[in-house]
C-alpha cells in the first residue's frame, strides 16, 4: 500500500470543488444522458488520460469505499495502475480487482462482464462526450440539436453504413438514446458492452475532463442503441472462446503470438477470467497457473 501524501486534501480536490462536481452529478442524474457543463479542474494527470473520471471519482469517494480501476477491462494496464495509485496516495481507501467487492469502479473502454448490482457506481472516463461531434464540430450547433432532439443526421450515418457495408460499421462508441430523449455516446466502449448500459442496476457516471462535461445514466434507465427496424443492433461474437478460461460469452482480446499469423484470444476482463479459472474453468490453450505469474 502506498503512503498517503501530505499537503493535499482527501481525494486531491478541495471540498468546494467536490461540491460543485456533485451538484453537476445530481443534475446529470436528474436529466439522464444530458451533458452538464462543469468547472473541470486541472488535475495532476494529463487531460485525455482520465481526468474526467478521476474528478467524478474524487467527488463521490468516501473512506468506506472500495475502489476498482480498469483500463481495457484489465486492472493491471499501466494507466489503471497509475490512477489506482493516485487514489491510494490521495485517499488511502481500500482498492480491489474484484468487480463484486468494489463500490466504485472507474473504467476506460469497458463495462465489466460480471453484472453490476445496486449500490455500485460505474465511472466512465470519456474523451469526447458529444455524439454529434463528427457530424457537426460546433458546440453552439450541437447543443441546439440536442435541445431540439434533431438527431436525424445520426441515422443518415447509419443508413450510409448499411448501404455501403451491409451493416452498421460503428464498432465502438455506439450512439444510444437515453430514456427516450438524449442522444449519448457510449464512452467509447465496444458495442459488445452497449447493451450492458441498458437497465443496469448500478449508477453509471460519465466524466469528460478536457471537454468539461458530466453525464449520467441512473439505475434501471432505458438505453437504446440507434438502429433501423429492419437492421436491428447486434453485438460481436467470436468464433472461439477464451484460451485461458474457456468463456464463450465475454469480450476477447486478440493476442498476437508471433509473426506467422499465430494468435490467441483471451478475456479482456481480467477479473472475470481469473474468477472463472478459480472456479475450475479452463480454456484450450493453457492451464491457469501459467498466466498468473
Amino acid at each position: 500500500m502506498t503512503a498517503l501524501l501530505d499537503g493535499y486534501n482527501f481525494a486531491f480536490l478541495d471540498e468546494q470543488t467536490k461540491r460543485m462536481i456533485r451538484r453537476a452529478l445530481l443534475k446529470a442524474v436528474a436529466i439522464p444522458g444530458y451533458q452538464v457543463p462543469f468547472g473541470s479542474r486541472e488535475m495532476p494527470l494529463p487531460y485525455g488520460w482520465g481526468t474526467g473520471g478521476i474528478q467524478v471519482t474524487a467527488a463521490v469517494i468516501g473512506l468506506d469505499d472500495t475502489l476498482k480501476v480498469i483500463d481495457q477491462g484489465a486492472d493491471d494496464t499501466t494507466n489503471a495502475v497509475s490512477i489506482r495509485r493516485f487514489f491510494q496516495r490521495m485517499t488511502g481507501v481500500r482498492t480491489t480487482v474484484k468487480t463484486r467487492e468494489a463500490t466504485l469502479i472507474q473504467t476506460r473502454h469497458r463495462v465489466p462482464e460480471t453484472p453490476l448490482r445496486e449500490g455500485q457506481i460505474l465511472i466512465y472516463q470519456v474523451p469526447i462526450p458529444e455524439p454529434l461531434r463528427w457530424l457537426e464540430p460546433r458546440e453552439t450547433e450541437t447543443r441546439k440539436m440536442h435541445a431540439l432532439s434533431e438527431y436525424g443526421a445520426m441515422h443518415v450515418k447509419l443508413y450510409e453504413d448499411i448501404s455501403r457495408h451491409g451493416q452498421v460499421s460503428t464498432a465502438y462508441d455506439y450512439p444510444v438514446l437515453v430514456n427516450g430523449r438524449y442522444l449519448m455516446r457510449s464512452s467509447p466502449i465496444p458495442k459488445f458492452d452497449t447493451p450492458k448500459i441498458h437497465m443496469c442496476a448500478a449508477l453509471q457516471l460519465f466524466g469528460a475532463g478536457r471537454e468539461k462535461r458530466i453525464f449520467a445514466v441512473p439505475p434501471y434507465t432505458d438505453v437504446r442503441p440507434l438502429d433501423f427496424e429492419d437492421h436491428p443492433f447486434s453485438v460481436e461474437s467470436w468464433p472461439t472462446s477464451c484460451a485461458l478460461c474457456g468463456s464463450a460469452d465475454s469480450f476477447l482480446d486478440e493476442i498476437v503470438l508471433d509473426d506467422q499469423g499465430g494468435r490467441m484470444f483471451v478475456c479482456s476482463d481480467t477479473d472475470y477470467c481469473a474468477d472463472r479459472r478459480a472456479a475450475g474453468h479452463a480454456g484450450p490453450a493453457t492451464t491457469p497457473a501459467e498466466v498468473t505469474t
Binding site: E150, H155, D227, D230, H231
Partner: peptide, 9 residues
C-alpha cells in the same frame, strides 16, 4: 430520418 422514419428498406 429526421422526422422519424426508421425502416431502411
Amino acid at each position: 430520418m429526421a422526422i422519424g422514419d426508421r425502416n431502411y428498406a
